[in-house]
């Protein structure tokens, strides 16, 4: 119900809500390209200061074994309607930033693992993360570099140990409609997932 008088402006504004999708994958797999092609705004980079345990500082036992790192991540936005906004967050691809996924993944509707078929091994950790955590539904999107894929989706499923129910689709990260298809597939799967899964305490 839309009302035009000014007093209701604030209240109608308060109906706005947001959701988020996480875009994961190996370094250079096409995460930022995907965010770029589907976002209504140019992707924005923000920085998060994160704490991580430092490794291999054997020369100094006095300092605490924590270091802070500044991590950049890209995000884009899609306005679904006047009340619903969806954000897409690209996770940092480098292995040493995986510790921040927990923060990013919390509260997400779902995740997309973007896979570069020429470097399957680079995506293993991302797939492993979502397979192990099972907290949010995820799909695998095979980025077609130069228009072709080196493996079938079933070969990729076997190689990356992706669960049988997880959708694997191929797409072109540079193409807006193709990227949109990936997001639609994720939402359809998330809905199906919600209907079939037992409520978790």
């Amino acid at each position: 119900m839309v009302s035009n008088d000014f007093s209701s402006d604030k209240r109608s504004n308060r109906k706005k809500m947001s959701s988020k999708i996480v875009i994961a994958g190996g370094f250079g797999a096409g995460k930022t390209t995907l965010v770029h092609s589907v976002s209504e705004i140019p992707p924005v980079t923000t920085e998060a200061i994160m704490t991580e345990a430092s490794i291999g500082h054997d020369d100094n036992s006095i300092t605490p074994d924590k270091t802070t790192t500044t991590v950049a991540m890209d995000f884009g936005r899609i306005t679904i309607d006047e009340e619903l906004v969806m954000y897409m967050f690209g996770t940092p691809g480098q292995a040493r930033f995986w510790f921040m996924w927990d923060d990013l993944v919390r509260g997400a509707v779902g995740a997309v693992v973007v896979v570069d078929c020429r470097r399957l091994a680079d995506s293993f950790d991302a797939v492993d993360y979502f397979e192990t955590n099972k907290r949010i539904p995820y799909i695998v999107a095979l980025n077609k570099f130069e228009g072709h894929l080196d493996y079938t989706s079933e070969q990729v499923r076997e190689a990356l140990e992706v669960s049988p129910e997880v959708p694997i689709i191929d797409f072109d990260a540079r193409n807006r409609l193709s990227g949109g298809e990936v997001l639609k597939t994720l939402l359809r799967y998330a809905l199906e997932h919600n209907r079939t899964s037992e409520p978790v305490a």
């Binding site: 959701s19 679904i80 619903l84 639609k184 919600n194």
Partner: peptide, 14 residues
């Protein structure tokens, strides 16, 4: 709401 989001995406990316 998820269904609404899906319908929105279907409208935006067709």
């Amino acid at each position: 709401v998820l269904e609404r989001a899906l319908r929105g995406l279907e409208r935006l990316f067709q």
